[in-house]
Every structure is written in structure tokens, then in C-alpha cells.
């Protein structure tokens, strides 16, 4: 049973205080939706939890590990605004490298993952030639091969069509049933079970 605890977190960007004394808990099997207006600090919160940005005060613990611990990094999957894809590489090459950077135990089903997001025909096409929605799908295909328990998804549904959104939502539900936890930011309505919501 994993648990991510955020305790009295405060974050400041320049002279602007984004949020103060923010506390919440996400247990395995739960999805936390972070909502809020543009510029309210949703992405900053996710980057802080991913260990990419620093924060003013507060604590973040994952099963009593801190953010810099090896175990947390092994259990973490962060998909940011940018798709983290190189336009000069093919879909398959990008996916292989992304998964190499992520969790070390993999099922190696790259083609199957691309099929899940409907891109089986584009395996060997260069990412630079694909549309924004297709790029987002490649980035999200990582969800089908990762073994990370903590998913941090920044705007996972942007640029996706309704069919793809349903696929990703059901994948997030499956992940939670298998004992994972997920924090996501979105402006859209989500049809996910066990959804908790906080507003910044």
C-alpha cells in the first residue's frame, strides 16, 4: 500500500505566491485531479512532486522515502506539457529511449503499446512528421509499458480526441486497480472512478 503525502507545501515563483500550506494525501488506488485557473500553479505542483522544481516550505513523502531517493525515482512516471519526443527519431525509437530513462523493469511490448493508442501503422515514422494529437498519443503510450506506481500527468487529455481520452481514462483506472496512484491536471471532465479533486 503506497501513499504520497504532501504536507503544508508552499510555492513561490518570482514575487508571486502560487499556493501556501497545501496538504493532501493520495493512497494507492486513488486518482487526484488538480484543477484551477490558468497560472494557479498546477504544473508547478506536479513539477515539485516530480522533483524537478524546488519549493519554499513543506514536506513531500512517498512511503517514508523523500523525493531524491532512488526508490521514489524508480516508482515515478512524469509526463509534462512537452511530449518528450525527438522529431528526428521514429515513434518506436522514441518510446524505447523514454522507457529506458524510466523504470528499469519493462515488458518490452513497445509495438503493443503503440497499438493500444492506435499508432501501429506509424511505428517507423519520424515523430516530426506526426500531428500534435499523435505526438501526445506516443507520449501516453508509455503508460502501457511502465511499471511505475506514481503517475504524474500534466494535461494528459489536451490535443486528444474523445476515443483516445476514453482509452487513457480506462488505463488510469486499471493502473489504480493494480495498486498504483495518479495525480493529474486537466480542465476537462474526467470519468474515472475513485477520483478526488483539489482546486488551487
Amino acid at each position: 500500500m503506497s501513499k504520497l503525502i504532501v504536507n503544508k507545501l508552499s510555492c513561490q515563483k518570482g514575487y508571486t505566491l502560487l499556493f501556501e500550506n497545501l496538504s493532501f494525501e493520495v493512497n494507492s488506488g486513488e486518482v487526484l485531479k488538480v484543477s484551477g485557473a490558468n497560472g494557479s500553479g498546477k504544473t508547478s505542483l506536479l513539477r515539485i512532486i516530480a522533483g524537478l522544481s524546488s519549493f519554499e516550505s513543506g514536506e513531500i513523502d512517498y512511503d517514508s522515502f523523500n523525493l531524491k531517493s532512488e526508490q521514489y525515482k524508480l516508482d515515478l512516471l512524469y509526463l509534462g506539457h512537452l511530449a518528450s519526443l525527438s522529431p528526428e527519431l521514429s515513434c518506436l525509437e522514441n518510446l524505447k529511449y523514454s522507457s529506458l530513462l524510466g523504470t528499469n523493469s519493462l515488458k518490452n511490448d513497445y509495438s503493443k503499446a503503440l497499438k493500444q493508442v492506435g499508432l501501429e501503422k506509424y511505428e517507423n515514422d519520424l515523430v516530426g512528421t506526426l500531428s500534435a494529437g499523435q505526438k501526445k498519443r506516443i507520449a501516453l503510450s508509455l503508460l502501457f509499458i511502465t511499471q511505475s506506481k506514481v503517475w504524474l500527468l500534466d494535461e494528459p487529455f489536451s490535443a486528444l480526441d474523445s476515443k483516445a481520452i476514453t482509452i487513457i481514462e480506462s488505463k488510469i483506472e486499471e493502473h489504480c486497480i493494480n495498486g498504483g496512484l495518479c495525480i493529474l491536471t486537466t480542465h476537462q471532465e474526467c470519468n474515472i472512478k475513485n477520483l478526488k479533486e483539489i482546486t488551487l
Binding site: A50, G51, L52, E70, K73, L74, L76, Y78, G80, H81, L82, A83, S84, L85, S86, P87, S98, L101, G102, T103, N104
Partner: peptide
């Protein structure tokens, strides 16, 4: 530069490698 623009550098930083 290119890896920064694409967001791959972020993934490199949070990687367990």
C-alpha cells in the same frame, strides 16, 4: 538545446539513472 525544447532533458533529470 534540442532536448531542452522537446522536454527530454526533464525526463533525463528525473530518471533513476
Amino acid at each position: 538545446h534540442y532536448d531542452f525544447d522537446n522536454g527530454v532533458l526533464e525526463q533525463m533529470i528525473i530518471s533513476h539513472h
